[in-house]
Computed example of a mutant assay.
Amino acid sequence: MNFCKHPLKKSWIGGLLSVLILFFANKEILAQRKTIEPGAIWPDQNGNHIQAHGGGIIKIKNTYYWYGEQRRQGLDPNLRYVSCYSSKDLVNWKFLSDVVQMSDPENLGPGWVLERPKVYFNATSKKYVMYFHLDNKDYSYARVGIAVSDRADGNFKFVKSFRPLGRPSRDIGQFIDDDGSAYLIFEDRELGFHIVKLSSDFMSVEKEMSLINAPLEGGAVVHYKGLYYAIGSALTGWNPNPNKYATSRSLEGPWTEFKNIAPPETNTYQSQSTMMIKVTGTKSTTIIFMADQWRPSAQWDSRYLWMPLEIGDGKLSLPKPRPWSLDVKGGVFKILQNRD
């Protein structure tokens, strides 16, 4: 009778060995990352570089969702893609899906543009509402598009486009205040830098909060210890420039004069602002500068510069990028030494 068990035993051992070999072969992929390394390849759970460029992040309960432009190689050139990743710690990210795979929604023609997707969750409608810069090849259409989903991981369906306040809109940013109010930031080449409040269903603009008379894009806002901090970058296309900040006690202003967030000769360490992430924990609050390091000739290889800001009492500065760790529960970060 024993001879009947030997093949099963060998099969079981062989299967176990296969699993162990696969595990150790992929241990670098499976291992949890402990640090954020600005400017480095940032792999997801599959070992692929995260593709969420010009993106934004929302937190639902204990999960962060990162949405951004999907720029991997081999995409259908007639479609535009937005990807979604999830994380519990802002360090290790799981690719969920391409939540947008959109064909030209308004017959804008070859080279049409979908950039800087930002998603808001509406607690009343239970809808995920995505805003994005929608444009034609020569950037003259200059509108925001809206797509909606019942789920964080898509699929998002195109609903409409419009010009907020009737004004041209190109680069957009998002801001959600501590009371849950939702705001859109958009760049108007003729007038400046708009901050507008969204309607209760997040499907339109309710009113303008501020028009900052400055030629800025890549808008980001955070509310920290009684002050609003706004960051923007100059209008230099793909080329990085010295990003600047201003402060105000109210979103309605008045705003202070804009100042550099980093030594100007570094061009914000070769990056452009896209968002500030507020991590409030049991011990402290960390404000993360979230930026893109664009590589226009190789978009799929564009990198991310995330660093905790030095912020408070009306001052804001971006430290020299170095590896760092983050405890999201405590809201505490630690700067690590450079790796040689």
Rank of each mutant, 00 (worst) to 15 (best):
M1Q: 12
P7G: 03
G14D: 03
G14R: 06
L17M: 13
S18R: 12
P38G: 04
I41F: 05
P43Q: 03
I58G: 04
K61S: 02
R71G: 00
P77I: 10
Y81T: 05
S86H: 02
K88H: 12
S97R: 06
V99C: 08
V99M: 01
V99Y: 04
P105Q: 05
K118V: 10
D138V: 13
A147F: 03
D150G: 00
D153W: 00
G154K: 01
K160A: 05
P164E: 07
L165F: 12
G166L: 05
S169A: 15
D171W: 08
G173N: 09
I176G: 04
S181Q: 13
F186L: 05
D188I: 13
E190N: 11
L191E: 14
S200H: 15
F202K: 07
L211G: 07
A214C: 06
E217T: 08
G218C: 06
G219A: 11
G219Q: 09
K225S: 08
L227K: 11
G232E: 03
K244P: 06
R249Y: 10
G253F: 11
W255T: 09
F258R: 14
E265F: 14
T266G: 02
Y269F: 15
Q270S: 06
S271R: 07
S273Q: 06
M276V: 14
A291Y: 13
D292G: 10
D301Q: 13
P308C: 13
L318N: 02
I335Q: 12
Q337S: 15
D340Q: 13
